[in-house]
Every structure is written in C-alpha cells, then in structure tokens.
Design a protein around this nucleic acid. Structure first.
Lengths: 149, 149
DNA sequence: TATTGTTATACTCTATAACTATA
DNA sequence: TATAGTTATAGAGTATAACAATA
C-alpha cells in the first residue's frame, strides 16, 4: 500500500510539513484582524450558541488555560462576552458579540482565500477529493470541531 | 470553488490541525529511536551524500542554529559525523555513519506504519490521490526536501 | 568584508500544577 | 470533596542577533 522509498515522501511527513505551511500562511492573513488560526474554532463553536469555557476546551481539544488566554484576547477585541451563569455561578457562558460575528465572517473569507491559493494548481475534482480525504481522516482521528464531545 | 460555510471545514484549517496530529503520532513512533520528525529530512538528505550545514539548513527550510542543534543530537546517537572540509576550513561536511543509515531505514519503516494507520480508512485509490495532491501542493509551495535549493 | 558554524537569547504554543470561588 | 475558571510556570520548537574562525 505504501511504496515510498524516502520518509519525506510519506503522507505522515508531508502532512506535517504542509500543515505547518498552511497554518503559517493562514496566520499571516489573520494577523491584521488580531487573530490566529486557533481562535477560529472558538468563533465557529460560539456561532452555534453560548458555551462554557471547559466545554470549549474539550470541543476543540486544548487545555483549559489555553481557552482562558484565547478568550482574554477575544474579549479585548470585543468579540466575546463572559456572562456568569446564574444557575451555577462557577461557570461563565461565553457569547459572541456583533463584532465577534463580523470577525467570524471575515475569518471565513480569509480561509477561503487561503484555500484558493493553496489549491490553485489542483483541478476542481482533485481539490474536492483532497477535502473529502482530509475530512475522513480527521473524523477517524476524532478531530471534530463543530460538535459536542 | 470553495463552498464551505465554516472555517473549520476549510482545507487551510483542516490541514493545519491534521498536520499537527500526524506529526504528533509520528513523533510518538520515533521517540524510542531518540528522534523527532524534523530529523528525518536531515537523514534523508544525507543519504544522498555529505552536505555542509548551511546547505542542509537551506534545503529543509530551517535556520542555521536549528541544524546545529539537530546535528548535535544526531552526533550523540552516532548517526552522523562532522568532518572539517580541507578545501574550505570553515565548512563541516556532514556524513551519515552506518548507524545513521540504519536509523534512516527504521524511520522509513515507522513512517510507513504511520501512513497505514492514518490512511487506513481510505481506499487505495483515494490514498494515492491524497498523496498526489499533497505532493503537488508541496511542490507549488516550494517545499522540497530531497533536492538542492 | 563576507561566510560557516556556534552560542545566547527571545518568542510562540501548549501543557501541568497550584490556587480561588463556588457547588 | 469535586468542579469551573485562573494564574504561574515549564517545556517543546523555532527565530534573531552577536560572536569566532576562516576565506
């Protein structure tokens, strides 16, 4: 099944390198907005409704302190609000502001631009096949973002 | 061409996340050998013959001090030798030892195992298509490893 | 002066552990 | 006791800048 004769030709290696590259390019585009790629999953999740911080952490697969940091940054941009949960005063429900929704819309635009640049040399069918393959691998690896744990 | 309605569905975002995941899994497999994914490109390049350190740096796209660090580690494993170039005494020619060649062979085995795990749920045709697409994107992005700059 | 390799330093990203306030 | 959030700290990984030896 795998017939490469050098490590640098394997999917394992290529995916790692390309992932880093795609991320850096995407980060460059996001920079003027004051965001980095990691914020996107948070904005995306919150677009579906308010969530507690630990919920966010589990859903996007990072540790709690990282979420605190990201939310501090998003709050400074007026993109989110922390609202103390009346029913359980330990929890904060995080909700997207109008500015946050606008920001999310712009990140999507930039991600699409980035996709176009990244996939420019592929035909439409090849690009679609790549997207499907990545989706299936991500699913099998348990990397889901929009859904509950 | 790009019709996703959330950032987390774009190739830009997915590739970044999957790249990180693939890299971590590969790193886990390499750990018992005392290596990390970044060493693989060096071993691969040196398999083609001795190289100077700055040549390596340019070829694999990292800064000079990173190469120094990686070679220190590889030297501790007796995988490479630094040989002062007689013609230009500033340069060190890095050559693979027998142990280094053996190590390289084993990294290839592990990378193939990792590919099999990663691509397990894909059909053979889909896996091949993915490989081709990644190759083309890497080529267009100027991410080449086996060849001279 | 310019280049090769080295060291020292800093920055990003993430994780772990200790702490607080609530439950 | 246990949980939600916070802070402090530490560890990878990489980059920049200053330096030594050589050209």
């Amino acid at each position: 099944m795998a017939s490469e004769d050098s490590v640098t030709e394997t999917v394992s290696f290529l995916l790692g390198k390309l992932g880093q590259h795609a991320n850096t390019r995407f980060a460059d585009r996001l920079a003027p907005l004051g965001l980095r790629p990691r914020h996107c999953a948070v904005l995306e999740l919150l677009a579906g409704g308010p969530r507690a911080q630990l919920e966010l952490a589990r859903a996007i697969g990072v540790t709690a302190s990282v979420v605190v940091d990201m939310l501090d940054e998003l709050e400074r941009l007026d993109a989110v609000r922390r609202v103390r949960d009346a029913a359980d005063r330990r929890r904060q429900l995080i909700e997207l502001t109008a500015a946050g929704r606008d920001l999310r819309r712009r990140t999507l635009e930039l991600a699409r631009q980035n996709d176009d640049e990244l996939l420019g040399m592929l035909g439409e069918a090849e690009a679609a096949a790549l997207r499907r393959a990545l989706d299936r691998i991500a699913g099998a690896a348990g990397l889901t973002f929009g859904e509950a744990p």
